[in-house]
């Protein structure tokens, strides 16, 4: 299996996502299967001269729009949809320790 329990915990921490202890074996197993499956991409010969250009669909260039003051685009403000909002600020718990 390519993904261990510790790998899942490390990735979950990067993704800011709680994974419950009893779900860990299943998550590790399914992630392993998905990553083993997509690993077939490495069977593709690496470009020898490094010139495979990446492909991005969409306009060739971003068109700038005029820098004009537009009307307020929202029908109502964040107080109506934020879990906690006070005097113009989103209210959050204390920052805690960032390791």
């Amino acid at each position: 299996m390519s993904v261990s329990r510790d790998d899942v915990l490390r990735i979950a921490q990067l993704a800011e996502l709680d994974v419950e202890e009893d779900a860990l074996p299943d998550v590790a197993e399914q992630m392993s299967r998905i990553l083993d499956y997509v690993a077939q991409l490495s069977a593709m010969p690496a470009p020898t001269n490094g010139t495979v250009k990446t492909f991005v669909p969409g306009p060739d260039a971003i068109h700038f729009r005029p820098d004009e003051v537009a009307p307020w685009p929202l029908a109502f403000g964040p107080a109506a949809f934020a879990p906690a909002f006070k005097e113009g600020f989103f209210v959050v718990p204390k920052l805690g320790q960032f390791e």
Partner: peptide
């Protein structure tokens, strides 16, 4: 859990949230 939708409890600090 800061800007939209519900916020789930059981957190001591921001990352816990």
């Amino acid at each position: 859990g800061v800007r939209y939708g519900p916020r789930f409890d059981g957190h001591a600090d921001l990352r816990g949230l």
